[in-house]
């Protein structure tokens, strides 16, 4: 089953937590070691919040829950996160 959405939709929720643009950040999957920009992650809309999965191995990378009192993220499957400067963001 294809994912409902992709990492582009996380830009808003994650802007509440991070100062950098999350969609161009390079994410290293803890499970398969693949490194890809976060925009291409598969994102499911779950009643609880958003679940981002690795587009290579489908393991959970991150969950994001926005509530009235704040944003909770769980970085479950991310081995490293590399923030790109704007000059190389393309």
């Amino acid at each position: 089953m294809p994912a409902n959405l992709d990492g582009n939709v996380l830009a808003g929720p994650l802007s509440e937590v991070f100062q950098f643009d999350s969609t161009t950040a390079l994410v290293e999957c803890m499970h398969c070691g693949d490194v890809k920009v976060f925009a291409v992650a598969q994102v499911w809309e779950d009643p609880m919040g958003l679940v981002a999965r690795c587009s290579t191995c489908a393991e959970v990378l991150m969950t994001v829950v926005e509530t009235a009192t704040g944003t909770v993220i769980e970085l479950r499957g991310i081995a490293s996160l590399r923030v790109q400067s704007e000059a190389v963001a393309d």
Binding site: N8, A11, G12, D21, T23, A39, E86, A89
Partner: peptide
């Protein structure tokens, strides 16, 4: 609303 959001799915005139 919040934004502007997302720096990956973008086209810049200098491309």
């Amino acid at each position: 609303f919040r934004g502007p959001l997302g720096g990956w799915f973008v086209w810049r005139p200098e491309q």
